[in-house]
Design a protein around this nucleic acid. Sequence first.
DNA 1: CATGTTCCCAAAACCGTTTTGGGACTATTC
DNA 2: GAATAGTCCCAAAACGGTTTTGGGAACATG
Lengths: 368, 368
Amino acid sequence: MFSTSPAAIITHWCEGQGEDVTDQAADNQGQRSGIRAVAKAAGVSVSTVSRALNGYDDVNAETRRKIEETAEALGYKPSYAAAMLRRNQTNTVTFVVSKPWTKYVDPYFLGILDGLEMVLSAQGYDLQVVMAREFEKEIEVIRRAVERNRCDALIFARTRPEDERIDWLEERGFPFITIGQTQRNSHSFVDRDQHKVGRESARRLAALGHKHIGHLTSPQRYNYTRNSIEGFRQGIEMSGLGFDPAHEIECFLSRRTGEEVVTELFTGPNPPTALVCGNDLIAISAMEGLQRLGIRPGVDVALIGCDDMPIAAYVRPALTSFSQDLGAIGLRLGRMMLARLGGDNSIVQDIIDTFLVIRESDCPGGAT
Amino acid sequence: MFSTSPAAIITHWCEGQGEDVTDQAADNQGQRSGIRAVAKAAGVSVSTVSRALNGYDDVNAETRRKIEETAEALGYKPSYAAAMLRRNQTNTVTFVVSKPWTKYVDPYFLGILDGLEMVLSAQGYDLQVVMAREFEKEIEVIRRAVERNRCDALIFARTRPEDERIDWLEERGFPFITIGQTQRNSHSFVDRDQHKVGRESARRLAALGHKHIGHLTSPQRYNYTRNSIEGFRQGIEMSGLGFDPAHEIECFLSRRTGEEVVTELFTGPNPPTALVCGNDLIAISAMEGLQRLGIRPGVDVALIGCDDMPIAAYVRPALTSFSQDLGAIGLRLGRMMLARLGGDNSIVQDIIDTFLVIRESDCPGGAT
DNA sequence: CATGTTCCCAAAACCGTTTTGGGACTATTC
DNA sequence: GAATAGTCCCAAAACGGTTTTGGGAACATG
């Protein structure tokens, strides 16, 4: 009988600290009435209060002032839920993080969020961060957010060449921006110039005199890896070197992969003298592998990483790595989002520049 | 009676992907009517649908099944806004991050969020992450979230001995849990055993033979620093050493501070031979300062850090540091929150154990 | 047969805004 | 003076769920 009503469980609800029963009641009364209380106190109608507070221009200046004062005096805060229901918009942008990120690439991620939040909150939008346990769950997280109308737009990263999340969202015309590109590129995105990263890494090492440059790529299911590979090959070609497919090996973000690959590469015939690594973690793992083989990274073998993670500056030798202004990505993302939410449906595709932070790991190539 | 016919209707409704206009219209109709469409299609009343879908027990099992099927077939998703308005609850927990965190302590922070989100989402709660540009803005962020009814409860960290956020929230009886303690400790919290960190750091270094142990504390406005200091002093005392106030110096989380302090400490009279550092960043900064003075950290001077940030394992010498299971903190936090939201108003105060990860920076004390 | 109990359901009320469609009044134009 | 335009305001109707109200049907009990 009581079991039917969940409210029954919360019986001893407000047994708080003091005896402010009167105060509580007064407070509640004030809060309960909401916009109606303001209307009453200001001697105008509810709709006029709403229009005045929302900046419509068919309200007399004097009336508006009075309403604003009254609202302020009563401590009136419009109910988010009610406005959301009526307007059918949430004033919320949802950012989806996939779990594997959180383990290693944290700073990358939060740097972006920081700039993004700044831009959005300045316009009254809230930023909501949701997490997906695995990549496969991301589509479900997105589905839930969209279907339950929890946000006005989405942002997510780690795009793949063919991305089901994008297909799904485009199908129902839901606004979103990605961090990273796709094969079709039919949508707005922000991305760093990954092609340049691959290209310039190769060219720099070639310019340093290396003839055999390996490429330990990031996971190839991600689109940015493809760009990186393309750029790398182009850089090799531009430098007049021959591309050796056997020196282009896919790695993963777990620490061991770089080490394994390096072990195989440098115990086999014709090892490279330099390595372009798709990611700092791969580079660090590779350095450890080299050291284990008695090869000195930064002396015998040159390495260039990518992402410029905080760790890069602390490992020995310190890792030369491609960096980018994460805050700028966030800001750009935020501004694009505001435009989109403001009704501008044009597709914006933004490539953020990257720059090489030179440290100790990229040494000149020796003989041969 | 009518329990036989609806099946046919449902299957008909199910047919849907192909046609454009018809499907669109049908879809819109279905979405527009929401729960009423489900009720109509299932041949029951709106309230019955609501009760069935919300798990009340006064609904016939057969009826419930039929309603669930119908809702599924129609792709019905209850409007979050409407439910929120009527129930006056958001099913959302807000986690407040202050800006200085995002720079360095990312992993700490995200590790907790990860566990927290897992627990909350399993019970249908959403986790919202909001950021505050500075500590001072945090109270405003909180105020906004609470006053606009954007969440049912709050979580925040970096507690101070006297914390205005807590005062404000307690004043209006709004549910929250902190990460970290306060002077009064009148609320639920999760915290690591910071007293132990200080104590055991001191004791370990003393046991290694050090007689003069310095303490580079984290910022003292935070409550955990106080615990750490207390613990340290107790550890010194337990080891039969004399406590030297001149060797207890407050540092900040910017990188330079540790270096400055160390420079002063080790160019002055009677320098310590070991340092307990309130934070890994302080420790790393201190190590750099030592190296600049020609003093070898991990050989001439022992250091112990705290937090076990990812960097700790990569600096040379690798930093010995106190660690904790961040996921466990998040899980605990989540479970406490669920209990609180479920109506259990009791205060829970939970101390999470920490453990020392021994690396290279804590060396035995030399002569003297 | 009268009465009580137990389950279930339809209809209406409600949550706190925004939006709609005028209404009243004044100013301007023919 | 009537018609038109402009300004400012209002009452009532959404928005889409959940909760309450009130009662009917089936079954058990005295």
